[in-house]
Amino acid sequence: MVRPSGIAHRGYAGVAPENSVAGAVHAASHDATTMIEIDVQPAACGTPVVIHDTTLTGRRDGRPLTDATGVVWETSLETLTASHILGTKETVPTLQGLLEALPETVGVNIELKNPGCDPTELRVGEALNADTRADRQQVWQPFVERVVADCEAFDGEVLFSTFCEGALAAARACTPRYGAAVLIWDDLEAGLELARRYDCEAIHPPRNVIAGTALVDTAYAGFPAGEPDIDILEAAHEAGRAVNVWTVETWQQAAQLEAAGVDGLIAEYPGVLEWDRDDTR
């Protein structure tokens, strides 16, 4: 059996400051790591920066996400790149700066998180009609062009992923050079339709929709508990698409997903990928 690829969620956010240069470099040092997953949004000037939340004041297990305040895309690049992540010395990086720090032996999965608009306008997880699709693409296009430009000097593999059709449309319009993946939220059929519409190389479903695993018994990521109506793994593989599952937090989850035949594990910890399933201890 071919083992799944290891994709470091926000640079293995379970063991390092998320979306940081140091976290990404540390994640890249693990033999099990194939790609580093990061999130990008624009600073006020349009420069792509690596951060997940809409605002700088989110929290992680009681810790403030940064020591700054405000909405990311309304904040100057100078302020963003001086903002410390989770009380550490690490600061919010630009996409260009993070890519420059990474070895080209590891790939980067860049989640197109937000182009600089109200989150209610993103149309997360939806397959849109033609008019709405064109409108959403226009909103995303300038930012995605900046992201693509920052990737040009990086010779490692780049995969764009997103929950938003507008971002997929913009990425495909920009360049055929990089792969694309649909992130699925609460609608498997919409995810499959978007994968077909943009001929995506991969699909990224949440861990609880992989049929035949015990993980389906837990509600997660917009999906209720219960066996899914669609076997997303079978459907994706029949179409020649990879299936990279998020977010994997334990070795038990990893073992189930590996046994099911997924292609990649988007994981919080490097250790979930390193347990030897032949060990009977």
Rank of each mutant, 00 (worst) to 15 (best):
E189I: 04
P224C: 04
N114H: 02
F160I: 00
V71M: 06
P119M: 04
E111W: 07
V72D: 06
N19K: 09
L95K: 00
E90I: 05
A134N: 13
T75P: 05
G226Y: 03
L56E: 10
T33E: 10
I230W: 00
V40C: 05
A202K: 10
L257Y: 08
P228F: 06
A82K: 07
G212Y: 07
A169F: 03
T34G: 15
T250E: 04
E157Q: 12
P42C: 00
C151R: 08
G166P: 06
R197W: 03
L77V: 04
T66D: 06
N129S: 04
A236H: 01
W140V: 08
Y198V: 00
D278N: 11
A180Y: 04
R207I: 09
D61A: 13
T81K: 03
A190C: 10
V50N: 05
T55A: 07
T75A: 10
V108A: 08
A180Q: 15
T81P: 00
A259I: 02
T105W: 01
D231F: 09
W246R: 07
T33M: 11
L215S: 09
L168H: 11
A68D: 06
E238D: 14
A8T: 12
A32N: 02
A171R: 01
S29Q: 11
A27T: 01
S83Y: 08
I230G: 02
L194C: 06
Q252E: 15
R136A: 05
R59P: 03
R3A: 15
E157W: 05
T66S: 13
A82R: 12
D279V: 09
L95G: 02
I203E: 03
P93S: 07
D131I: 12
L265T: 01
G11V: 03
V272S: 03
G46H: 03
E193Y: 11
V124A: 13
L65T: 12
N244P: 05
V108K: 01
W185V: 15
I38F: 04
F143H: 07
W275I: 14
G70K: 06
R60H: 12
T81L: 02
A28L: 02
E145C: 03
D118R: 09
Q41R: 14
G14Q: 02
A24K: 06
T247H: 08
E111A: 06
T55K: 12
D53N: 14
I210N: 04
A255F: 06
A202Y: 09
D187H: 14
E152F: 00
V25S: 01
L99P: 07
T81V: 13
A255N: 02
A254V: 02
V25Y: 06
A32C: 15
R60F: 10
P48L: 00
Q138E: 11
L273Q: 13
T247V: 14
P228D: 05
V49G: 01
P103S: 10
L233E: 03
G264S: 04
T75W: 02
D276L: 15
N208S: 12
G6T: 04
D150I: 01
G271S: 13
E165K: 11
M35N: 11
D199E: 14
W73R: 09
T54R: 12
T47W: 04
E274F: 06
H237N: 13
T280M: 11
E165C: 02
G70T: 07
E111M: 09
P119C: 04
Y269S: 14
P224A: 14
A267T: 13
G46N: 00
D199P: 05
G23Q: 09
Q41W: 00
E37G: 08
M1W: 05
I36H: 05
Q138L: 01
